[in-house]
Design a protein around this nucleic acid. Sequence first.
DNA 1: GTCTATAGTCGGATAGAC
DNA 2: GTCTATCCGACTATAGAC
Lengths: 209, 209
Amino acid sequence: MARASNSKGKTRIQKEKTEQILSAALDIFSAYGFRGATIDQVAEKAGISKPNLLYYFDNKEAVHAELIKRLLYIWLDPLNQLNEEGEPVEEICAYVQRKLEMARDYPRESRLFANEILQGAPRIDTLISGTLKLMVDEKVSVIANWVATGKINDVDPHHLLFSIWSTTQHYADFDVQVRTLTGPKAKDRFEDASKYLDFLFRSALTPRS
Amino acid sequence: MARASNSKGKTRIQKEKTEQILSAALDIFSAYGFRGATIDQVAEKAGISKPNLLYYFDNKEAVHAELIKRLLYIWLDPLNQLNEEGEPVEEICAYVQRKLEMARDYPRESRLFANEILQGAPRIDTLISGTLKLMVDEKVSVIANWVATGKINDVDPHHLLFSIWSTTQHYADFDVQVRTLTGPKAKDRFEDASKYLDFLFRSALTPRS
DNA sequence: GTCTATAGTCGGATAGAC
DNA sequence: GTCTATCCGACTATAGAC
């Protein structure tokens, strides 16, 4: 019997249901973590029954695995766009902005990822040591080259990336705290963050004359 | 009957057991989140039986609540030390270093906090909008004053704090990822982070002449 | 105070009718 | 394909012996 865990050989109806489920699952998993989320919650949010959900996915793990699989592509895209041929400071600042836009537009994905890492990455360790590490290693050497040729100041490329990820993802992962502390008067926290982060990284990277 | 949830009127034995339980609980809760942690795990790690644990604490929530309560004091201490009378750039850079040391020495506390915020702070919302916000508001106005008098560059105080928190806590919360991506050759990630973060914030804050 | 045994509940997964 | 009903394991919490 055909199972709907992959996208091959499915009818239009099946695809729609699968997407409904995954969207609901992203809501629930990102908000409560893997353990904290229940299939019942996901099914209810997707507007179907629990057994029906389990007709489309073998089990809870399978739903989560599919979400993680899709996450990686969205996740790596902004880093992928970092162009070795571009003007170094501008390239990095543009990367910061793309990452911040991701935190604004895909907060659920950010939190899903954070939940996993925070708990020791039990279900995504191969992803991190595999695809992610490969891409990071590549971009780290690009940045190291910019440092070596004096195009940007002497910073550790790994830690530069960590600081970009953490500062931008913070607005998705710690959103509750950010909103509480900035208060209701703050109009657009992402607008303010955009301006601040651009200044922060530009100041640190632009070579002293 | 005396319950051991608070520290009043307890024997030495009771205090020790309570500390054993809380230390074990910090391990488990920070690693698996509230929902993912089980009392059995905590009891086993503390070297006692589950009913015995529940003799010392009313229930699972009570253990967690006590951890959170204690967390706040450790958490606010580095910010507390920020001295309005000191030299602004040095004060902030010293704060960054203290926060980084906290991430190194108290990673479990950092992850416990992150787990809570990430899932919408269901058990600590009053803490954030209460004590934390009060202290943050106070320090924000100190920083705003430094900006107004030209002692540091024109940055948004809230977002400065967010970037300090996120970059430093990243080394506790995303430790798995950091270690995987920097690789085994990296001797001391905290040493490298210390150097990098000092440069980052110093560059951005030091007033242009 | 600490244990064994167990009650009670929840959640993942399956059976089987339609 | 979708539902109702249900099984079963896991987990919180309590009862009661010692």
